[in-house]
Structures are given as C-alpha cells and as structure tokens.
C-alpha cells in the first residue's frame, strides 16, 4: 500500500456545471476538435416542484482492474505512474477493442493520429512538479480533488474519510479510482 495510487474526487454538491474543466482539459492536452476527455453529466430527478439535481464532472476512471488494459492486443494501453491508465500512441493500432471494453465509454479515436485518446490524469503535470491536474486547477468552486489514495494525509484521502462518496458502476467490477461526493 506504500506505492502511489492517484485518484480523483468530484464534489457533486458544489459543482455548478460551468464546464471550465472541459475547456481547461482541451487547452492543456490539445484534445482533437469535436472530442473531449472529460464532460459534464447532470441528472434531474423528481417532479416539479420537488426536484433534485446532481452534477458530475466525469472522465476516465483509471480503474485498478481496467478492462481496456486487459483487452489491448499490443500493450498500448497500460498502467502508468501512480496506477493510472495510459496509452502509448506509437503502439496503438486503432483496433478499438478498448473502446468496446470500457463500461464508462471514456475512450475515443483521435482522428488526427488514429490512436486512442482519453484522460491521462495529467501525469505530465503531476509527475513533473505541478501537483494539480488542469481540470482541478481551473475549477472555480474547487470541486475537484486529486492526489494519492494510499497517502492517508492526502486531500483525496481526507475528503473521502469525512464525506460520503460513491463510484460509478461499481458492479462492473473494474475498481475505479474516481469518486463522487454525495
């Protein structure tokens, strides 16, 4: 449990669906036009006037038991620093098996390269001295937390200890490392 395990937590109570995280990601990672590595999901439930709304900023869940990694025939999809899920563009054949295998539909083909693209948890930043991801950096309501799940003193560990949280589709069995605060 000593190895670093990067995880992300989004506070659904304070997220206002401004989509700054989406734009920040596109800018930071030069995401292909018409595609996005993260997105805003909103669910409105109930009937007027008793309505409730939940807002989530979603992305690749960087699963511990990632089906996209196990189906990849060339090793292009692999576990990277801090247990994140990464793609080596030069190894990707664009066979799209990982898109089919991902229960979160988090992957897509970058039309410029023909290779798979998706959220990297900004490892190029967090592994090189900048402690934040681009989406986290710009969030105006500070709803995005990122850090080492194995470090009990990290912000993500602390917020997961004191607040009730859930992961998406836990019964898909992929052990996602992306959580949402209720």
């Amino acid at each position: 449990m000593s190895a670093v395990s990067y995880g992300m937590v989004v506070d659904t109570r304070t997220c206002v669906a401004c989509a700054a995280c989406v734009i920040a990601c596109k800018t930071e990672n030069d995401v292909a036009e018409g595609f996005s590595r993260d997105w805003i999901f909103t669910a409105t439930s109930g009937s007027f006037p008793n309505l409730a709304m939940e807002i989530r900023s979603e992305r690749c869940n960087h699963c511990e038991d990632a089906p996209c990694v196990s189906v990849c025939p060339t090793g292009a999809s692999h576990y990277g620093p801090g247990g994140t899920v990464q793609v080596t563009e030069s190894k990707c054949t664009g066979c799209k098996a990982c898109i089919a295998a991902c229960p979160y539909d988090a992957r897509f083909i970058d039309p410029r390269t023909g290779a798979i693209d998706k959220c990297t948890f900004c490892v190029h930043r967090v592994e090189n001295g900048t402690p934040t991801t681009a989406c986290q950096e710009v969030c105006p309501t500070k709803s995005i937390y990122f850090g080492d799940l194995n470090d009990p003193e990290s912000e993500v560990s602390r917020v997961l200890r004191v607040r009730e949280a859930y992961a998406l589709l836990p019964d898909a069995g992929t052990r996602p490392k992306h959580f949402f605060l209720k």
Binding site: S70, C72, P73, T74, T93, G94, I109, T113
Partner: peptide
C-alpha cells in the same frame, strides 16, 4: 481496413498479451 492506425498493425507481432483475445487471434 478496420484499423484506425493500419500502419501500426505490425505491433500485433511485437508482443503476446495473455489476457487479450485479439492478441491470441493474431
């Protein structure tokens, strides 16, 4: 023809991935 990156097809034969049916297939 289905591959989005057809010129990387040789990558199938640079490795064997035990858990990937596509790797077994190639």
């Amino acid at each position: 023809l289905d591959l989005e990156n057809p010129f990387n097809a040789f990558r199938f034969y640079f490795t064997f991935e035990l858990t990937s049916p596509m790797s077994w297939g190639s």
